[in-house]
Amino acid sequence: MRGDGQDGYYKESSRDDLIDQAAAWLVALDCGTADETAFEVWRNADPRHASAFAQAAATWRRTADPRVPGLLETSGQTELAAEHAYYEAGSRGAASSAMSRRTALSAGLAAMLAAGGVTAWLAVPQRAYAETMVGERRQIMLPDGSTATLNTNSRIGWHFGSERSIWLERGEALFDVRAGDSALRLHSDAIGAELTPGRFGLRLEPDTARLMVLAGSAKVQSYTIGSGHVAVARGSGLSIEPLDPQVAADATAWEGGRIVFNGMTLGQAVAEYNRYLPYSIVVAEPAIASTRLGGEFRISQPDDFLRSLEDGFGIQHRWHDGKIQLVSAPSPTGGG
């Protein structure tokens, strides 16, 4: 049984004790309530203490990763009540308070150590938020004069300090970026980019994210994407494709309150329209889902869209169970 007494030191219970102590020190230091001298004594007493503390700090730091808000959002488990409170904070002129703090996310160890310390490493820049409800559209003037236009059911956060950062947490937005001292960093769960001055559109969907470069250029990973291209992130893959000007115009028509269907199927068109509606339109008959259609509609006038379906394709609609069902009209000759 040689050595067992020493081994026992690392056993479960004492490891848990170390975790508890390290977590308590870290939070107390973070909240400014710790006796720093006592902390130094504790940390220096044993390399295991120093190690436990560094592990706690590494985990603590992760909780403020720029991608966390997006990940929390997409998994749909965020407390609703809390969510509401955050929104209020964001809309009450939080932009000014966001600018008052000069903390910054640091990009890497080398840059940080070169900058003379680790002060910023655990810091979280205070963010401001803005969001739109379903069917809503909103333009936000950012602190540097850049603008963000939010499409339906979207949410952004931003922090403009020594770096400019914007997070798209859900939905879709157009960004008109002004020149500044530094590149503007655009974050989202699926894709991140450094933007030059210009115009960009980012749309998040459950399985894909599309970043359109309409003017200027965007750096995604190690790729520089020029104007007239779109970066599509799907799973862990990234593809960069040329962007047809007409496609780009259609994809940004929402900015003017319009929705454009250019040869897409009824199924796709309905899915697109549903983004803007508090209720949903469903294609009740699979046979008509593949009908291809074109046309331009006011987003705020779904009745026009439904009437056109009836006039142009004989597709009728009826309310059922809180939804609008689309069905093919009975054949005019069928009744005799």
Binding site: T63, Y86, V124
Partner: peptide, 8 residues
């Protein structure tokens, strides 16, 4: 944790 770490 959210208010302190994510919202800062």
């Amino acid at each position: 944790l959210y208010l302190r770490r994510v919202e800062g």
